[in-house]
């Protein structure tokens, strides 16, 4: 299964079949999640309708971590087995993960303003999400910093793995730092433990975001494969001295 898709042509054929199904599933899940979230779930008794931000915020935060884990696994596979698709998957994952992290931070900020009275607090969770965003940006910057794409892929893979080892340490140290400085005011959301009517849209959105990630990743991998083909053709043409593309 794993080595079957080392052949890009075979993978492209597989992706072309799977992609419309994943796309349909994504549309279905997210629209169902949005319907339940916006119309068919109760407003919180303390927070009112602002609680509905949760249905975007929490899945984005899940996806931010999920994408980084996938990124690290793909990078490990690329470094150890030199699987050609793993490099492309890692490269495709990074911007999506960064987007989810950014979305989680922005929606969190929008939620924080009415609830905590501030756009931003230096809470442990917020801070570690911000650091995660920097790790994504560093990965993407390093990946693009070389004239030779293969070299960029290898170097950034090492960085992603180093970052993966560091994420738990950063998370732990940020927790320590926060509790040391403001022990009494660790911000906690009020309200009841989550009820089924709220959990349903949340889970729908969570799965919907995951399929969305797979969908966009497939598109980006296909784009990268095509791009590599074009580059190889151009190189061959340059070598033989022909002028038209």
């Amino acid at each position: 299964m794993f080595h079957r898709f080392a052949n890009p042509t075979r993978f492209l054929r597989f992706a072309a079949v799977v992609q419309p199904w994943i796309a349909g599933l994504t549309v279905l899940l997210i629209s169902a999640g949005l319907y339940f979230g916006l119309f068919d779930s109760p407003a919180d008794y303390q927070q009112g309708a602002t609680v509905r931000i949760m249905y975007v915020h929490v899945p984005s935060a899940w996806m931010a971590l999920f994408c980084y884990t996938s990124l690290a696994i793909a990078c490990g596979v690329a470094l150890i087995w030199k699987h050609p698709l793993a490099d492309l998957a890692a490269k495709a994952t990074a911007p999506i993960g960064a987007g989810f992290t950014f979305l989680a931070l922005v929606t969190g900020s929008l939620w924080g303003k009415p609830m905590w009275g501030a756009w931003w607090v230096w809470d442990a969770r917020l801070t570690s999400m911000l650091v995660l965003l920097f790790l994504y940006l560093g990965y993407m910057a390093l990946n693009n910093a070389f004239d030779d794409p293969a070299r960029g892929a290898k170097s950034s893979s090492i960085l992603a793995l180093v970052g993966f080892v560091n994420v738990p340490i950063i998370k732990f140290s940020v927790n320590w730092w926060n509790t040391l400085h403001q022990p009494a005011s660790v911000v906690k959301m009020g309200g009841p433990s989550i009820h089924a009517s709220m959990l349903t849209p949340l889970l729908l959105m969570g799965v919907g975001f995951t399929t969305y990630y797979l969908w966009v990743m497939l598109i980006r991998i296909r784009y990268e494969v095509t791009n590599n083909k074009i580059r190889a053709l151009q190189r061959r043409q340059a070598a033989t001295g022909e002028s038209q593309i």
Partner: peptide, 19 residues
């Protein structure tokens, strides 16, 4: 061997320095 090494270095290293 990368382009714009110095500024890139700070983006890579500073998040890891936080702990």
């Amino acid at each position: 061997g990368s382009r714009r090494g110095g500024i890139l270095l700070s983006l890579l290293v500073l998040p890891l320095y936080i702990p």
